[in-house]
């Protein structure tokens, strides 16, 4: 009796095992399937094995970046569209400012990327000091910021502590040392690497040396491994340098002494006045002619002066004429 019931039971369980076993064999080894090219229709496998956005093609593009900083952008792209309408060309780099302690503007970064542009963030450490950043006590914030950047998975240019060679910012020469600046920079960079935020273009962005000739830039240089672009902040004023070479030349020559990273004029504009049209011509002409310079970011915000290009019709007309050149602007690739 027992024999009659046990054996069929055993056979039944065996066949059940066989069935479940076969199911388990189907696709049990995820690494084995990962080693194969995912099928076209297999979106989940493609997404899972997709590489993060590779910024390498963006580092030294064939054409010039045409950037702009506008109030309200990049959270909204309406100011960018309006500016594009004004100057007759769509910018492909959107400048923005982020104070230390602010979260990363992931939405803005996506907006900009979907519009075919690159987000440029000037990360300003007003508080709590470069030493505090370097010693690790800000790591939680930095890691959260980095994780957010990584998750966004769109290219972002980040310029930490711009104009560090000037005395006018709290992270400048008056309150901080070059050593502190380099340590803080490297620490932030390391944490971004640890988090895997590889979609960042690191922009080291001093002010032009003209107003602060005694401050040597090399001491502030974190190293080639930590920087992708050299940014140069230099405005055209009514009383300042009149040519591209006199405004940016001294800085570029000094920088060329320790690195050959591509140069972006990371913040510029021309002060309204008689010279403005000529200054615009100098800027755009210089950017186009200088092989090391990969573009500029026009500061189109009224702050201390009305830096907006539309405030001077003659200068605007010149800007429109020159920026129309094919050398300026390109679509930031989607992958």
């Amino acid at each position: 009796m027992i024999r009659k019931s046990v054996l069929p039971l055993a056979v039944a369980m065996m066949s059940l095992m066989g069935l479940t076993g076969c199911g388990a064999f189907g696709d049990e080894d995820p690494a084995e399937s990962a080693a194969r090219e995912p099928a076209d229709g297999d979106a989940s496998a493609q997404a899972q094995h997709a590489l993060p956005y590779d910024v390498k093609p963006l580092l030294a593009p064939d054409k010039e970046y045409f950037g702009v900083a506008l109030d309200g952008a990049p959270t909204s792209l309406k100011p960018v569209d309006a500016f594009a309408k004004t100057v007759g060309k769509k910018p492909n780099l959107v400048g923005s400012y982020s104070s230390w302690g602010d979260g990363f503007n992931a939405k803005g970064a996506k907006n900009v990327f979907e519009d075919g542009s690159l987000l440029y963030v000037s990360w300003e450490p007003f508080k709590p000091g470069l030493g505090t950043i370097a010693d690790g006590s800000q790591d939680t914030y930095i890691k959260r910021y980095a994780a957010s950047v990584r998750e966004t998975n769109v290219p972002v240019a980040i310029s930490f502590g711009h104009e560090m060679n000037g005395h006018w910012y709290p992270w400048g020469t008056k309150k901080q040392t070059p050593d502190n600046f380099v340590k803080a920079w490297r620490h932030i960079h390391d944490l971004f690497q640890d988090e895997g935020a590889t979609n960042v273009i690191w922009v080291w962005s001093p002010n032009v040396v003209n107003p602060v000739p005694d401050v040597k830039l090399k001491a502030y240089w974190p190293g080639d491994a930590y920087v992708d672009w050299t940014g140069v902040v230099g405005y055209w004023t009514q009383t300042g340098a009149k040519t591209f070479d006199t405004l940016y030349g001294p800085t570029l020559r000094q920088v060329a002494g320790f690195t050959d990273k591509p140069v972006l004029i990371s913040e510029t504009s021309a002060e309204p006045g008689d010279r403005r049209r000529a200054d615009v011509r100098q800027l755009l002409g210089g950017v186009e002619q200088n092989k090391d310079v990969i573009g500029f970011v026009w500061f189109n915000i009224p702050k201390r002066a009305d830096w907006r290009i539309q405030s001077s019709p003659l200068a605007l007309a010149e800007f429109k004429r020159l920026i129309a050149d094919e050398a300026f602007g390109f679509e930031v690739p989607k992958s």
Partner: peptide, 15 residues
């Protein structure tokens, strides 16, 4: 850290 020869391609935590 800070090497010239290599760049970090990606970091892959366990899913």
């Amino acid at each position: 850290r800070g090497v010239k020869q290599y760049r970090l391609l990606t970091v892959l935590p366990s899913p």
